[in-house]
Write a protein that binds this DNA or RNA. Structure first.
Length: 502
RNA sequence: AGCGGCGUAGCUCAGUCGGUAAGAGCGCUCGACUCAUAAUCGAGAGGUCGCCAGUUCGAUUCUGGCCGCCGCUACCA
């Protein structure tokens, strides 16, 4: 039994869900659904990062405890993912007891292995912010937020001996050619390692809202070294060794390019320091750009997934986001493009195909579907489409996989046009054409399920099949000729409405 | 500045480990059809694959240079 353990970054509860978060989460969901279709045992993990100064401060402003503040925002992420039909298997929160145990265990292991030591951290500090700044972040030597003078401060911190891992990290790049994909980001990460690594301060005494350092309770772990560990926590690190041993080797992280350093350099080094093997794999994506600006909380262009789902439908949003934004490079993101994609591929393409086929069967075949013919040319089309799609999903390229899948939709429309079953008299010739179209729809319903699960279930139902395409098992389910015929086909309302770009 | 990436039809992007591959979808024009959500099908227009040079029998694909855009350069969600 193959295993597939995929993660999104855990999202910081200082923020509310926007399309940038949804992009990563949707891609992960689709990839996991694709693996489930192949019978893999899948563990899809997402969650929220809840410690740190910003949460503590937001809580104070709202008159809440930090936990209440975290609860409030964490819930919004869970609601967003539920709304988008994200089939996560676990939703981890860093404030959970299991996570405290894992962080303390992992870092203590690093400490015992000699990779954590105490030293003095020196830096410029803004009293109002209660935070250190890098010199480069200052504006005219002042705090970038308060524009007030900063002071030179020093405090005792624990440091992680990152510098000890340069060679071992490079050896990892050497040994695992696809440890990070796409290659452009792999190069970037390797350049970071080659450029030299300095030790990292990983604890704070100036902060209360965090996980205590087990051997020195005055300190809490600084957010990154808390947050990254979530992946191990959820796999059972520190609480369930057997479970951890089962899932960890199957681990792969999805992340945006802005956090490559932490994920692809610091985190592997921490794992090595703690003696955790093997290292996970990483799939890095770029940003969604709106008029050239990164979509993130600092931008005015952040868009709420719920608003788009209300306009496009959940599947309309899922499909157009996955189809139009290749996983890897930055990509343009616009409302007009989403609408366009929904109309051309969903309404005019799949939806209309389903509509014309079911309506012909309903009107002239007594609503009884017929079986496909074994030697149909569409069988060749579906076979090739599955092969292309599978290869693309394996490469973490949902946009390419969906394009390949939609070749079936286009070819089936052409096939109907060529044979014009609406003009044929009842009989084997007409039944063969309609059966072929129904069979093509069956296969599309399976292959497109990772992107548009709800709609594929409806296609399934309308062509008379029992159950749900999620229960199909690939690659067998993609083999031509399985639509049985004799089922009752339902011609209902259009599956996807045509949208106008307003 | 150093390192890295990108530059292919109007738009969004595939692709070429160098040779009958210059491609897809959308958009556009014309035509067909009317089962279907003014959907569908066919045909067509449109690109010196950023620029220059080199290697080669042959480069969009390799090498060097240049131009343009972007990212990273450290404890910053």
């Amino acid at each position: 039994m193959a295993r597939y353990f995929a993660t999104t970054p855990i999202y910081y509860v200082n923020d509310v869900p926007h399309m940038g978060h949804a992009y990563t989460t949707l891609n992960g969901d689709a990839l996991c659904r694709w693996r489930r279709l192949h019978g893999d045992e899948v563990f899809y993990l997402t969650g929220t990062d809840e410690h740190g100064l910003k949460v503590q401060r937001a809580a104070e402003e709202n008159g809440l405890t930090p936990q209440e503040q975290a609860d409030r925002t964490s819930r919004r992420f869970r609601e967003a993912w539920d709304l988008l039909d994200i089939a996560y298997d676990d939703f981890i929160r860093t404030t959970e007891a299991r996570h405290h145990t894992a962080v303390q265990t992992l870092l203590e292991r690093c400490y015992e292995n000699g990779y954590v030591y105490k030293d003095t951290y020196q830096g410029v500090y803004c009293v109002s912010c209660e935070a250190y700044y890098a010199e480069a972040d200052l504006t005219d030597g002042n705090c970038p937020i308060h524009e007030s003078p900063v002071e030179e401060m020093a405090e005792d911190n624990y440091f992680f001996r990152l510098s000890a891992f340069r060679d071992r990290l490079l050896a990892w790049f050497e040994a695992v050619p696809d440890n990070i994909t796409p290659e452009r980001y792999r190069n970037e990460a390797r350049a970071l390692v080659r450029g030299g690594l300095e030790d990292l301060s990983i604890t704070r005494t100036s902060l209360q809202w965090g996980i205590p350092v087990p051997w020195d309770r005055k300190h809490v772990f600084y957010v990154w070294y808390d947050a990254l560990t979530n992946y191990a926590t959820a796999a059972g690190y520190g609480t369930d060794d057997e479970r951890f041993a089962t899932w960890w080797p199957a681990c792969r992280h999805l992340l945006g390019k802005d956090i490559i350093r932490f994920h692809c350099v610091y985190w592997p080094a921490m794992l090595m320091a703690a003696g955790v093997e093997p290292l996970p794999r990483f799939h890095v994506h770029g940003w969604l750009l709106v008029s050239g600006a990164k979509m993130a909380k600092s931008s005015v262009v952040q868009i709420a997934p719920a608003d788009l789902a209300a306009d496009l439908g959940v599947d309309g949003l899922r499909y157009s986001v996955l189809r139009d934004n290749p996983f890897g490079p930055d990509s343009d993101f616009s409302y007009e493009a989403l609408v366009q994609r929904c109309n051309s591929d969903l309404a005019n393409g799949l939806g209309n195909l389903l509509q014309r086929v079911t309506s012909i069967v309903a009107r002239s075949a007594g609503s009884l579907g017929s079986a496909p013919v074994p030697e149909s040319p569409l069988g060749v089309v579906t076979e090739q489409a599955y092969a292309s799609a599978a290869e693309a999903w394996d490469r973490v390229q949902p946009s390419v996989a969906l394009e390949a899948t939609w070749r079936i939709v286009r070819e089936t429309n052409e096939y109907l046009q060529a044979h014009q079953p609406w003009k044929l008299d009842p009989g084997p010739a007409r039944d063969a054409v309609l059966g072929d179209a129904l069979e093509a729809l069956r296969i599309v319903a399976v292959l497109a399920h990772p992107a548009i699960p709800r709609s594929c279930a409806e296609v399934w139902r309308r062509i008379g099949l029992a159950g749900d395409p999620s229960q199909a098992r690939l690659p067998g389910a993609a083999i031509w000729g399985q639509y049985p015929g004799g089922l009752t086909v339902t011609a209902g309302a259009p599956l996807f409405p045509r949208l106008s770009a307003d």
